[in-house]
Design a protein around this nucleic acid. Structure first.
Lengths: 201, 201
DNA sequence: TGACTTTTGTTGACTAATCAACACATGATT
DNA sequence: AATCATGTGTTGATTAGTCAACAAAAGTCA
């Protein structure tokens, strides 16, 4: 008569998943996804092949979950700075985002540069769109622009810039990138109801 | 009816031991050994406290096995260059040794600098003595010196120099250290039966 | 084509790691 | 001295991971 608590996840599970994800990302930075075998992954992760199948049904399932996991964390990170609060100062500029991408460079580099995996860019775009949409829920646009259009515009611009930055091995610092992007956005819109930021005149 | 092979070690065992050893060395570079608890170690190693007790009876047992393990590897590494073979050229100088210590700097630094653990220096000295004795078995000394004395002299000198080098955060490169030590040894003895190396005249 | 190697996904027997719980020891604070 | 917190070492029930073995699929090449 027992049955233990089990409310928290067994730490072995996390260790295993982390090892597998790390191995996959490493391998994807080295070769084409299609050429990576389950054997490669389990060897690199230093665990039994059978263990991998306890968590993922095949390598496509693994890739899928790996992407969803990372993008979900990215979105979570973005949402930490609450929408509609202190949005016009530099402290809430895109800087944390670029620092985030810098920290997870290996992942985003692997995903964006790897041949034979087309799905990633679209998934990332989708997540960014959802994120921006969420943030714009409270602070409404008041320039007479269609919200959908603005969201698409911003998401595409952001993802495109990030993709360029990552694919080119981050030639500029996160600070510079954030400043540049902030300036461009500023030239277009201010994102909350206060309207354009008076610049000079 | 079965009984599996089990000739090789279960990879879980190696992973666990490696995590524990890494955790101990890290912690010892941060604080006094006496102030490190079993809880600290198991937390840092990211495993259950009970798991640690499956491998070690207490933290002293762990420290002991950790030291013996490292020193045994060190000796193994030293013995890779066979005694009595090509001993007079630079390629067989102490350089590999200093590179070895550089690679395992964190361990030796922790052990040599940590207060509240006196046993390490003596154990290391003993291992070095055994190593040198082993190497001198084939190539005999022929200067009329007592072998024991020569061994003690060399071991003390070597350990002393290494200890200074590690404790001072490796102020000189392994190359320089090896060259210096080689020159000093050369000024004293050549270690094989060929006698002094004619230097110049 | 056919022989071959490699990879895949699954099985069952087994072992190591996990977790909560426990009693006890040590140490500091009041 | 009594209280409180923290660390120790052990227990038993349970789960996750391991390994070798297998058959079937997919890729390689003479």
């Amino acid at each position: 008569m027992s049955k233990v608590d089990r409310s928290k996840v067994d730490r072995r599970i996390n260790k295993t998943r982390e090892a597998i994800n790390k191995a996959l990302i490493e391998l994807m930075s080295e070769k084409n996804f299609e050429n990576i075998t389950i054997n490669d992954i389990s060897e690199r992760a230093n665990l039994n092949r059978g263990t991998l199948y306890l968590h993922y049904s095949d390598k496509y399932d693994l890739l899928d979950k790996c992407i969803k996991d990372h993008l979900s964390n990215m979105l979570k990170f973005c949402m930490l700075s609450k929408p509609g609060e202190e949005r016009l100062n530099v402290s809430n500029s895109p800087l944390p985002m670029f620092q985030y991408f810098e920290e997870h460079f290996l992942f985003y580099s692997s995903m964006l540069s790897n041949k034979g995996i087309t799905c990633f860019r679209e998934q990332m775009n989708l997540v960014v769109i959802n994120g921006i949409t969420e943030r714009l829920k409270t602070g409404e646009i008041n320039h007479g622009h269609n919200k959908e259009v603005v969201v698409q515009y911003m998401a595409s611009a952001f993802v495109g810039v990030v993709e360029w930055w990552i694919k080119n091995n981050m030639p500029l610092s996160p600070q510079i990138m954030a400043q540049q992007l902030w300036d461009i956005f500023d030239g277009n819109y201010s994102l909350v109801g206060e309207g354009r930021i008076p610049s000079g005149s």
